[in-house]
Design a protein around this nucleic acid. Sequence first.
DNA 1: ATATATGTTATATTTAGAATATAACACAAA
DNA 2: TTTGTGTTATATTCTAAATATAACATATAT
Lengths: 120, 120
Amino acid sequence: MFIEIDFNSNETIYSQLKNRIILAIATEEIKQGDLLPSVRELALQAGINMHTVNKAYAVLRDEGYVTIGRKGAVINVSDDAFKARQELFMQLKPAIAGALSKNLSKDECIQVLQEVLDSF
Amino acid sequence: MFIEIDFNSNETIYSQLKNRIILAIATEEIKQGDLLPSVRELALQAGINMHTVNKAYAVLRDEGYVTIGRKGAVINVSDDAFKARQELFMQLKPAIAGALSKNLSKDECIQVLQEVLDSF
DNA sequence: ATATATGTTATATTTAGAATATAACACAAA
DNA sequence: TTTGTGTTATATTCTAAATATAACATATAT
């Protein structure tokens, strides 16, 4: 799992890192039980600070993707389908509002979602 | 169109304001050609600074939702379906990655989208 | 015409978060 | 015993967000 940071992005570094790892879980590049790289190692590889990696890991823990023990951060996805659906709803709402405002039809929104799903 | 700001939100004020207006366009609470409140009036109503409203309007202009003339900000949605689809795709991707990581099925993602669409 | 409200621009300050830089500690494994 | 790990603490730098005033030209309403 190679991490590449875009230092010109508006998105914060720890957020990029977090989303990159979530993507890796979604594509099964990394799986339940896998150990993430140490904060120092990943920081070195990505060319960022140790604490920035630490923060990304902490957020991943808070959002239910990993548990952090003495060995490090381990993929451990929380099994709460209801909460997951709720979060997805919240994230989809503003995105769909933008699309409908731009006069995309509801069918077109479904089409785009299908394209996204097919990309996994 | 009453604006309420959550001062405890992580989302920036101008972003909340921007998204609130996009939502109003999507629900047809406001329509093409409508004039938005003056920056001073809206700032007063929402309890925020004039310049914060001004920034929200500027971003809405940059994202193709309004044009700003001497009379103020007027709803004028850019008609570029391709760009709109592209932006929707970009916004949907990380949201779907999160959902799939949390072991939601693709069908469940479609279900949630349907719920969102039905809320409009 | 006068007063008012508008957008616009400019400058300055404050605040908060992001990111980095060191440093130190306890613990486990090699 | 050394090395690598997570963890904690402190301090600094940097940037964006938000606010505070102020001024200007213009358009509208009285």
